[in-house]
């Protein structure tokens, strides 16, 4: 039960829908309780184990509903290449007030493609190590890192637009201040 908030939080931010998240969490616990006897604590730990069940249950639903394509090997290759070639540039965010970006960032996180949102949430929100994420998602650590990097790059792009909006607004405010003197 101690892991329920984590499991629900992940389900909610994956499905982006409270009712679907509840269904998913319930399915996860049903599966977990059925598999309890075969679970060995030392191998994975309760939280990663539950999150793996949750993730598998979620992927099953996504595939069934064909809501969003799940990353293929080819897509993975592209992502890794982008991560390898890309660069995280925060110049556009230099003036950003991070206390003011909450809603914008939340929206940007929810707008991330599922593949990247999943890794970002596990890393940033649940504070999981790369190795733990790799165990939950059953993928190599390198893939976790490239996805996480790509997710953050996409978020920076989104927030840069926000930063530019603020900058575009700022000079006119300044001009108004000047003219009022």
């Amino acid at each position: 039960m101690a892991e329920l908030p984590t499991v629900y939080r992940m389900a909610f931010h994956w499905t982006l829908n409270a009712a679907d998240a509840e269904d998913l969490v319930q399915e996860t616990y049903l599966r977990a309780l059925r598999a309890e006897e075969t679970f060995r604590l030392g191998e994975l730990g309760v939280r990663p184990w539950l999150l793996r069940i949750l993730h598998n249950a979620f992927l099953t639903r996504v595939k069934r509903a064909r809501l969003e394509p799940v990353a293929t090997g080819f897509a993975e290759e592209i992502a890794q290449r982008q991560a390898g070639e890309g660069e995280l540039s925060g110049q556009a965010l230099a003036d950003l007030d991070w206390e003011q970006v909450d809603e914008r960032l939340k929206r940007a996180i929810h707008d991330l493609p599922l593949t990247y949102r999943t890794v970002f949430l596990l890393s940033s929100i649940e504070g999981m190590k790369y190795r733990e994420i790799a165990e939950v998602l059953e993928m190599p650590i390198g893939t976790v890192m490239s996805r996480l990097f790509r997710a953050r790059t996409m978020l920076v792009e989104q927030l840069s637009d926000f930063g530019n909006e603020i900058r575009a607004k700022a000079p006119s405010d300044g001009a108004a201040d000047e003219s009022s003197r």
Partner: peptide, 29 residues
């Protein structure tokens, strides 16, 4: 920037509470 994204990301999605009905159902399970 990496740290800001991680910390701010954690903050903005942290307050997702478990609905009472779900809590009851899981306790029942």
């Amino acid at each position: 920037l990496h740290r800001k994204l991680r910390e701010t990301g954690r903050r903005v999605v942290a307050g997702t509470a478990v609905p009472a009905g779900l809590l009851g159902r899981i306790e029942g399970l």
